[in-house]
Design a protein around this nucleic acid. Structure first.
Lengths: 289, 289
DNA sequence: CCCGGTTACGCTTGTCGTAAAGATT
DNA sequence: AATCTTTACGACAAGCGTAACCGGG
């Protein structure tokens, strides 16, 4: 009776929690409602704890806790399978590159036409998972970091990371902002400013102590810049990007020495066209143009 | 037939790989050799790849790959179970504290007598796992970091981390060393020095570009200091510790601004005596004596 | 021929679906 | 009454052990 928390059960558990419904989860997973009910019962019996309230279906505190663990677990499981299978399977003919919006810079655009590469733009938080699970062959992520410090990425799988670029960071302000005239700003100056929360684009994790001014779920850079320029909230962006925003004023950041860093993620095994593209992206002088 | 890589199978796989024997693994796991054989066959069939060579029993490249994933996976699984169970179970009467050798400092020794605490000294790499799996109730880890930067810990589970102390780092040199007279050293000066590799004590991940001079598996600080003083290799230690080493010369480090940081790890839910101890350890002025 | 891994086979146990029952709004 | 979850039960497959098999020192 002492099962080791079968991944199948975890999978249906997260699905039920996500959909707040046994029957909907059953449809999505191709089970009967009955089976789903039995899965949840098995989990709860194994842990001797209620994980979900019924009617309405919501996770209990213990369920919430399990959910926090289950997602990364299932991800790692997929990553493991994909990683092993990659060894045996032939290198993909058409390679797919996952990139966060801000990682799509001149260097990438120059290297792209090399071969038939499919570019998929994802929120930065999803790029490591996409590479780990084999959905994409390579990944480019970006984020703020101390100079020459690697990014802090969720370790879904042992991926090879290579620093590709580091750029100056800037704050994008609306034209009339009191700090808009400055040559540079310190983050302290913005301690209680309201930031834009844009998880699909990137950047502001932890910097914002205050509640975000506005949340933007998309991955479109222009939209984000427009929002910032229109005064809906501040945005922290690479200087290069902030400068090219139509409106608004880009003021470089200097106080906490932070840079906008881009890294290349590659699965352990890498051959053929993917390896060639990786070399193009990482190659040249370290942190070139 | 499309199993999701049952943890049971993974567990026997890692055991077989570790023991290089089906029958030994069977004994350890309480199965028959036959069952173990079937487990491996099931895994190999699922992945359509040979994972182990027989006679001698060794992992194939694909097997090595799977091993890298399997260990963290099983760890996370245990962590998830422990985390959920902790919610229901009563807070432990006697609490256990996992600490890496260098985290055992004056602050800890002052706070310890408070209640009946069991102290368990572990290699720093094992502390997060001990806390995550519930083997210990709290953890103290240490490592080098940029000032006020959190340590880079393997994320086996979502643990709460609190900075507890930051101290100056120093290099412990034998008395006759050319740099022994300096007031401070830069890491560049030691670019091709030979370091002691002491994973049980901590500190030198990545700093050493060269092969280690000597490897010490234990967790005893005095031994490590003695080895360094006797010229078997350099050791990077908190200045406080390096100074108290009987022999050898402690030279502070200044060039790359690095500190020796200690952090407190606590599982999400924390009550009773454990919470009290956590407060004692983390409390007071930030990074106090 | 012995040691160790594999294969064959039967038994037990678990898992899923159908269908009826129970609960909640 | 309608909707959604649980329970009962039967069919089927999976997992384990016993025992026979086989291949290499």
């Amino acid at each position: 009776m002492l099962m080791t928390m079968d991944p199948h059960l975890l999978r249906t558990f997260v699905t039920v929690a996500r959909l707040s419904s046994f029957s909907a989860a059953a449809r999505e997973l191709g089970y009967t409602q009955s089976a789903v009910s039995q899965h949840i019962a098995a989990l709860e019996g194994d842990l001797r704890t209620e994980l979900l309230t019924r009617r309405p279906v919501e996770p209990t505190p213990a369920g919430v806790r399990l959910l926090e663990h289950a997602a990364p677990l299932l991800l790692r499981l997929d990553a493991a399978r994909a990683d092993v299978l990659r060894l045996a399977s032939a290198p993909p003919g058409r390679i797919t590159l996952a990139a966060s919006p801000l990682a799509v810079g001149p260097r990438l655009l120059a290297a792209l036409p090399a071969t038939g590469v499919t570019l998929r733009v994802l929120p930065p938080a999803e790029v490591p998972a996409a590479v780990a699970t084999g959905d994409c062959d390579l990944g480019l992520v970006d984020g703020p970091a101390a100079p020459s410090d690697p990014l802090r990425l969720p370790d879904v799988a042992p991926l090879a990371v290579t620093g590709v670029a580091e750029e100056e960071l800037a704050v994008l302000l609306p034209a009339g902002h009191p700090l808009a005239g400055r040559a540079a700003v310190r983050l302290d100056d913005l301690a209680d400013a309201r930031w834009l929360d844009a998880p699909g684009v990137g950047v502001p994790p932890g910097l914002a102590r205050t509640a975000p001014a506005l949340r933007y779920e998309g991955t479109d850079l222009r939209t984000l810049c427009a929002l910032a320029a229109a005064g809906h909230g501040l945005a922290l962006l690479p200087l290069r990007v902030a400068r090219t925003a139509g409106a608004g004023v880009a003021v470089p950041l200097d106080a906490p020495r932070l840079v906008h860093r881009t890294e290349l993620l590659s699965p352990g095994n890498l051959t053929g066209a993917a390896a060639a593209l990786a070399a193009r992206l990482a190659g040249g002088s370290p942190y070139g143009p």
